[in-house]
Design a protein around this nucleic acid. Structure first.
Length: 362
DNA sequence: CAGGCGTGGTT
DNA sequence: TAACCAAGCCT
């Protein structure tokens, strides 16, 4: 890395030591961590790291426990169907992670004798394992010296060294700073988790608790009074609103119609309530009927489903119809009590909730 | 490289 | 309440 450290090597080593001491005292006791310096199961580290991508510890907790109970080993997970994995992942979001998780488990079994490779470079070749996750697994599970850089690390480095260049351009410089603080292999895993804990609990995006920070005396961002404003980020573009009409088809025996979405793209591989395409221009019912999964007397359901995805807001109106037992449509008919056994993302469970609630009130 | 890709908690 | 944000990856 081109940047010359602004801190002397002895200062950097002292900072690393202070952080490790802080971590030994204050580090969180999380389900995927092991105590006493033992090496954790690479499968558990990988599973937790993939779930934690852009997702909070609190949200991950129950999903991690459920996955580990149902699939205790990478071999067990590789033996599962993709649909079972997607169903277990439903509600966690970023469903490409679940597809890659499944593909990665199978790759480990088929190409690595059922054991995760133990180098950063080899890990990086696995589906869904990018630069961050490969470094994290190498350091935490295999005791390798790897420079682990996630959003927490970027924020902490930007503040500690008062680097004002905005993301994402500043990534390279931030990684160089992280490298300068990363200790030898034996402690790299603890160090990585320590910086991330620091970022998650003290050096938070807003209202950082600088007074409690083990690096408070050295932090240039704090000294200059701009810690909270770092790292600089480009403003996000406004989210458009897209609209659609969903078709709640209910058979005489109570079963409702679901269908599977395309394997790639938004909610790829997940189940859905059939609907029109989602577009900014509002739909009329007459116009929407061309997209209905079957011909019926569709009646508006009072209320509206709102949901926000990463890059757009969604507003769905719902229409419902009763159809005969012999009704034919592309998809699967599912009893309401069994909806929980299908891979329904949150946007879809909101449609289910609206339709069933209006039906009860009736 | 920029943009697609979920969701729930916090402010 | 609307906006912001989280232990990123892929194309």
């Amino acid at each position: 890395m081109p940047d010359v450290p602004a801190f002397a090597p002895s200062v950097l080593a002292d900072l690393t030591g202070r952080l490790l001491a802080w971590y030994a005292r204050e580090g969180r006791d999380l389900p995927w961590r092991v105590k006493g310096g033992a090496r954790p199961d690479p499968y558990r580290v990988w599973l937790s790291e993939v779930m934690l991508q852009q997702t909070t510890v609190a949200t991950v907790g129950p999903y991690y426990a459920a996955f580990l109970a149902r699939w205790p080993t990478v071999g067990a997970l590789a033996g599962a169907s993709l649909d079972d994995v997607l169903t277990a992942w439903a509600g966690l979001g970023y469903y490409a992670r679940a597809r890659n998780l499944h593909a990665c488990a199978r790759a480990v079994v088929e190409h690595h004798q059922g054991r995760f490779p133990d180098t950063e470079a080899a890990l990086h070749t696995l589906p869904g394992v990018g630069a961050y996750t490969a470094a994290a697994i190498a350091a935490i599970a295999f005791g390798r010296r790897a420079v682990v850089v996630d959003g927490n690390v970027e924020r902490v480095m930007a503040r500690l060294f008062a680097l004002g260049d905005p993301l994402p351009g500043a990534r390279k410089a931030l990684k160089a700073r992280a490298d300068s603080l990363t200790p030898e292999a034996a402690q790299a895993g603890d160090y990585a988790q320590a910086v991330m804990d620091l970022g998650a609990t003290l050096c938070t995006p807003r209202n950082p608790a600088c007074g409690l920070c083990p690096w408070r005396d050295a932090c240039q961002g704090r000294r200059l009074g701009l810690a909270e404003s770092l790292p600089a980020k480009a403003p996000r573009p406004e989210k458009p609103t897209r609209r659609g009409i969903a078709f709640w088809a209910e058979r005489a025996d109570g079963a409702v119609l679901l269908r599977r979405r395309p394997e790639r793209g938004l909610l790829g591989g997940m189940m859905e309530i059939p609907s029109t395409p989602w577009r900014e221009e509002p739909w009329t019912l007459a116009e929407a009927l061309a997209d209905a999964p079957l011909s019926a007397e569709w009646k508006p359901v009072p209320g509206r489903v709102r949901h926000t995805f990463t890059h757009f807001h969604l507003e769905l109106d719902v229409v419902a119809a009763r159809v005969g037992l012999n009704a034919h449509a592309r998809g699967v008919w599912v009893a309401p009590d069994d909806l929980g056994h299908h891979a329904l993302p949150t946007a879809m469970t909101r449609i289910v909730h609206l339709a069933l609630t209006r039906k009860e009130r009736g």
